[in-house]
Each structure stands twice: as structure tokens, then as C-alpha cells.
Design a protein around this nucleic acid. Structure first.
Lengths: 382, 382
DNA sequence: TCAGCCTATGTAAGCGCTTAGATGTAATCG
DNA sequence: CGATTACATCTAAGCGCTTACATAGGCTGA
């Protein structure tokens, strides 16, 4: 291994000078610089990251922790595991991190095995300057413990989180817009809900919006619901279960907590010969890539996932630079994506901004200050 | 920041003892261990990764370098950028890395901007113990330079690579099986090829297999070809171009170098009212998740992407442990996935192992020793 | 001509950890 | 009972870098 000392010796200068040259810094005589550079090239010197980190007391590395939901069917099953969600977030984060010339350490947390993975999280925290943590799988008190050690930003997490910053899409407004569309445009009344896992805070937001809307529309009712785990497989099960339970009397629409489960429901319906959207509408959430490909194309809510990653990363870097700020929640606007699974004519493919719900949220915690981020979309009077 | 010294002082022991406790090592008296552990917990001590790396002269970190192909249309466009390919590889790698309690540093290389990114690769090499590099975007001589510094394994790369290990799917056999199916089962004769980017070694393998098969079947011909960039968008363009060029006389089948482009072709055909597979068959390669969702479902070749990641990672860890071995190419078996875009009846969904092509490869380099990995599938006489 | 200053470079003290070897202590044995 | 051994623990020397501070020339100007 070639070290700074080797370079210094060969170039006949001190290590300080070499270090200065490497960092393109201040006053080094041109001739000296050239000589050092030549030696570096000859020797193929590359600075050791660990030594640099130790010395400058900063690693220039952040950690990204994603959640991996397990499929009961098969351990490694793309349909279940790849939410296609973190994949986009990852790209957003990476783009930002690269702009700053930092590095990205990535780790997946199995949902089932949360507990045994906490030590892993802890040890990760010793290797980075800050962490981005996906969704709400990490228990809140543990999050607080982490956040005391280093800056932490939660991506798509629980908006009521107090210990750390949160960057998330406006799930509630998106869900509300989607369900209103179903009710108002397509006159769907009898809704069935395929919910996400209890641990998922975004599923919770979507559920609340749905419930509020149903409550606000007397002619509307929730005819049933089941709980999935955000996977295609669990969506298929939910679809089958619905079919078994409803008998002849199908609901007007099935509202799924994410696209993957909606795709599963579509599969179950397809197998059973149930026509979508003629007999029943099906809608998802997230607008992952395959949503536009399935039959019929899925009406859903677009989450700006890549942007989510970028914003979260920006926020984190900010925190690392200025650790004193108090935590904030940043809400990113969602978009309603109309295709044909909701009953819109085949070929429909429009995207529209979602009116942001006002401050009409149910009061979050006790003594909670108003802490939703600024809205990005103007809020038309619904 | 709490350091080892703080813990040592509070517990009234030396740093050596604390270190031993932290690593659950050998002889430490139980009472001492307990005391130290208590202090660690109280103080919330977490070892500093940089210091550990520096001291033990090993970082326990590997780097994964993925390729990100740029879309001309839109800078951040999931359909183009997410090959859905690295996402699976990533998961495979991460699973292995986690088993070993190492960490994973990830970085994307823009294809367009290869040159300016090389310094980035170099600096990455200073932060890891070994690197996994995707596909063949990194110029071979640079790869050799890297491989001299640290262990490097190429994932899905060029099988003729000499400087580093390569782990890849058996693209050639897969492609051959797919095209034979088209020719022999469905009697397709006039083939059109949508090729991948010139920089992609797997596209090359697939192209060669196609060419060999066409050459071997006199009644068969390649009626045209165009080159895409592995994105949906480029597939759409290729489809449109084909339509414009062929006039009334459509080819019997369009063989695409990957699924994403096949999906693009399907879109272009759909828009033009061309029926698949009645008028023309369309097939892809990779078997990414959405391939089963499009209309008609895509016949393709399954690449064991997750496995690819796992194997590559295993190999890399092996190399790091024993740096002396000479580079090898490991070929993972592909599977033929029959759905209906090739002409098989709607509802078809079978997967079959692909017969491995014998050693009948065109001679690779001058004086090349036989260096294909062991075959995983028995090779029936075609 | 020399104090005073500016610039280019060198010196050396860490950064927080691991670990070889030193040390101290208690158990074991002839 | 002293020598030997085994065990628990400590001491201190790095690991490869960065950087505050020291130093050495060369210039300036009175």
C-alpha cells in the first residue's frame, strides 16, 4: 500500500505539502505541486479513507437504511421485496450525495426481524456522519437514541415523530384526492380497503384520509377491509379474501394502500374473471413504474420518490453542517394519476396536482405545536 | 463524542480491556466484562468505524458501482434509469454483506459521463476493501489499474475481461434458447433486432447468439436492426423506426436486448395498432418484474439477478481474504420464460432451464486459456 | 543594512482504535 | 517454598492522515 509518506519521500517534500497538493489547496509552489503530482501518479497513490476520516473528524459518509418487507412465500421474491420505492429514493439520495462528494452506506432492515437488527443500526451509526432512515420500522425511542448521537432524517416516516426530521409525501391529501375522485367522478359508494402493515406510517396516513372522507359522505360506506403487507402476494390474498367474503355483492371500488397490493388484487380478480373497472374499480398508491403497465392501467397517487430522497438528503447534510436546528416535518406534494382502473375511459393518462388538505388534521399529540412543513401546492377550496 | 478512553476511565480498566469486551473476545473476567458493558451502555458508546478501520488495517466495507443510463428525454426518469437490474443485484449483495457483518458503499456511474467519473471510482477505492463493478462501462485498462490496487469483481460484465473476476448470467445460451424457440416452435423467420448500447457487454453476448442462430438457420434472416440504450424510451423509438422502415411488410418477430426496450416496442406497436403476437412477436431479456404485467405478457429470459449479486459478493469477499487467486469467469444459468408475446397461447407462464451452449464460443483473445466458469446446468446435446 | 513581513514548506501532535508484548497475580507442582 | 504456568490486565506503539504552529528564505522599505 502506498501512503502519503511514500509520496513525500519520493518527492522530497513533507507530508504536509503532499496533503496540500492532494487537496488542491493554497500556497504550494507550482514546481513543487507538479513534482508531487507526478510522484502520486507514478506510485498510484490514493488516500486512505479511514485515515482521512479519523484525522479530519468527519467521515463524509451518510447511511441509508431501507426497510425490506418479507414475503411469506419465498424468501427472495422481487415482487414482494422490491417495493421499487427505496430504489427510487436511493437514486435521489445518491444524486445529492454525489454532488457533495460524499459517500453512501446502505443497509436494509428486515421488517420481521426489527429487534435483532437494532445493534446493526447502532454500529452503522459509528460509520457515518448522519443517517437517513426509511419508514417507521424503527421504534420511536430507539430513533431518539440514535438522533442524540448523530443527525437523523426519517424518509416517508411518521409525521408525528419528534426526535428527528421527517421528509415525506403528502399522503393524506393524495389519498383524499384519490378517494374523492372515486366517489365524486365515478359515483362509487361501497368501498373496500386493502390496508398496509400496521408498522407503516404512510399506510396510516392514507387510511385516515379514507376514513375521514367516508365519514364526510353519508351515502358512502366502507364495506370491508383487510390488511396486507405492501406486497403483491398479500394483495392477491386480500383480493381472494374479498371475493370469498362478498359473494355476489362486490364493492364498487377497492382502495389499496399501495400499488403492489393493487397489482395483486388485479391478479386475483383477473383469475376470478371479475372485470375491472366495470364490476369494481381498483386503485393504488405510489405510482411505481409497473402501475402503468398492468391491465387495466392503475389509477394511483404519484409520490415524488426520487425527490423525497433528494430532499431528505439535503436536509441531512444541512443538519450535519448545523446540528442545532430543531426537527421539522417536510411534506412533498403528491399528484393524482388517472388511468383506467378507476373507471376513467381506457387510454386516460393524466396527472394532476393534489389540493393540499388544510390544517384540518386530527390533533397529533398532546401539546403539539403546528409542525407540518410548508405546502408546495396552493390549496384550492377543494 | 464518547470514546474508548472514556469508557476505560469510567470503568477503571485499560482501553485494551474495553476493546476485548466490545469484541466479545477471549479472557476477560466476568465481573470486569459486566462492569465495562454497564459503562458502555450508560455512556452510549459506539466504536468509531474510521478508527477501527485504520487500526485493523481493514475497512470491512465493499463498494458497489452501478451503471446509470441517461435518458435523453428527462433527466430523472424512472423508466429509463431504473433498470430494475441493479436494484435486485443490490439486494443480493447486501444480503451477503450483512451475513458477514460488513458494510456496503454504493455509487452510480452515469454512462454518458464515464470519463469524469473515473476519479470518483479511484477515490471510492480508497474507502473500501474491494469493489463490485457493474457491466462494462469502465474501460478495461482502468479496471486493470483498479484491480491492481484492490480486489475487483465485475458483475454482468465482459466475459473476456482479464484483469478481474467476472460473474454473469449465461446470456449467450439464454439468447440462443429464446431465439430457437421463436424459430422452431413458432416458425418465425424474419427477425428484427433491437440491440443494446455498444458499451454493454451483455448486449453483445445476446447479439452474438442471435447472429449465430440466424446464420445456422438458412430459412431464417435478420430483416433489420436498430440500437437502443436499454431504456423504455429507446425501445419506443426503435419500434416507431421499425414501423416506418418496414412499411406493410412487418418482421415475424422483434428480438430486444432487454425487457425495458421490449416494453417500449410494445408501446409503440400498441399505439400503431399492431397486434402482438398475431402480427409480430416481441421478446425481451432479463425478466424484470414488470415483464409479467405488460400486454401481452412478455416472453423473455430470466437472469438470476439477485443470485448474481450474491455470487459476486461471495467471490469478492473470497478475494479479499485470499488475494492471490487468478481471475475467473463464473457463468450463472439463465431460464427461458415463456409467456404470450412470442406466440404461445395467452395464459402461458412457464420457466425452463436453458441448455448451456458448449465450449463452441468464438475464440476470445489471443492465447486465451479456457476460462469459462463451471456450468451449473448439464448441457444436453442442444 | 536590517527589522518586519509574506510565502512556501517542515515538524509533530493528535484522531480513536487494535494488539503485541510486558507486567502482575494467583494457582499449580515438585 | 520457590519455580513454573496460566490467566487477566495494562502499556504503548502504531494505523495514515490533517493541520496548528514553527521555520526559513526572500522581499520590502526606511
Amino acid at each position: 500500500m502506498v501512503t502519503l509518506y511514500d509520496v513525500a519521500r519520493h518527492a522530497g517534500v513533507s507530508t504536509a505539502t503532499v496533503s496540500r497538493v492532494v487537496h488542491g489547496q493554497d500556497r504550494v509552489r507550482d514546481s513543487t505541486r507538479a513534482r508531487v503530482l507526478r510522484v502520486i501518479d507514478q506510485l498510484g497513490y490514493v488516500p486512505d479513507g479511514a485515515a482521512q476520516s479519523l484525522s479530519r473528524r468527519r467521515k463524509n459518509v451518510i447511511g441509508l437504511v431501507c426497510v425490506e418487507r418479507q414475503s411469506p412465500r419465498q424468501q427472495y421474491d422481487i415482487e414482494s421485496m422490491s417495493l421499487l420505492f427505496y430504489d427510487e429514493i436511493l437514486r435521489g439520495v445518491e444524486a445529492r450525495i454525489r454532488d457533495h462528494n460524499w459517500s453512501l452506506l446502505i443497509s436494509y432492515l428486515r421488517e420481521a426481524a426489527t429487534d435483532p437488527d437494532l445493534p446493526r443500526l447502532l454500529s452503522l451509526s459509528g460509520q457515518v456522519d448522519g443517517m437517513l432512515i426509511g419508514e417507521g420500522v424503527v421504534p420511536s425511542e430507539f430513533l431518539a437514541r440514535l438522533a442524540k448521537r448523530l443527525p437523523v432524517v426519517v424518509v416517508a416516516g411518521n409525521p408525528d415523530e419528534r426526535a428527528a426530521d421527517v421528509v415525506m409525501a403528502d399522503n393524506r391529501s393524495g389519498s383524499a384526492a384519490l378517494v374523492s375522485h372515486l366517489i365524486e367522478v365515478h359515483g362509487r359508494r361501497r368501498l373496500y380497503h386493502v390496508d398496509g402493515p400496521p408498522s407503516a406510517p404512510d399506510a396510516k396516513e392514507r387510511r385516515i384520509a379514507l376514513a375521514e372522507l367516508v365519514a364526510a359522505n353519508p351515502q358512502c360506506q366502507l364495506v370491508g377491509s383487510s390488511q396486507g403487507s405492501f406486497t403483491v402476494h398479500s394483495g392477491e390474498e386480500a383480493g381472494a379474501q374479498l371475493l370469498a367474503a362478498c359473494g355476489e355483492q362486490l364493492p364498487d371500488a377497492v382502495v389499496c394502500a399501495n400499488d403492489l397490493m393493487a397489482i395483486g388484487v388485479l391478479r386475483a380478480f383477473g383469475r376470478a374473471g371479475v372485470r375491472v373497472p366495470e364490476q369494481v374499480a381498483v386503485v393504488g398508491f405510489d405510482d411505481i413504474f409497473p402501475a402503468s403497465l398492468c391491465v387495466p392501467p392503475l389509477t394511483t397517487v404519484h409520490q415524488p420518490m426520487r425527490l423525497l430522497g433528494e430532499r431528505a438528503c439535503t436536509r441531512l447534510l444541512d443538519r450535519i453542517a448545523r446540528p442545532s436546528m430543531t426537527p421539522k416535518v417536510e411534506l412533498l406534494p403528491a399528484e393524482l394519476v388517472l388511468r383506467s382502473s378507476c373507471g376513467c375511459p381506457p387510454g386516460t393518462a393524466t396527472r394532476q396536482p393534489v389540493p393540499a388538505l388544510g390544517a384540518s388534521r386530527s390533533a397529533p399529540g398532546p401539546a403539539a405545536p403546528p409542525r407540518r412543513g410548508r405546502r408546495k401546492t396552493p390549496a384550492p377550496a377543494s
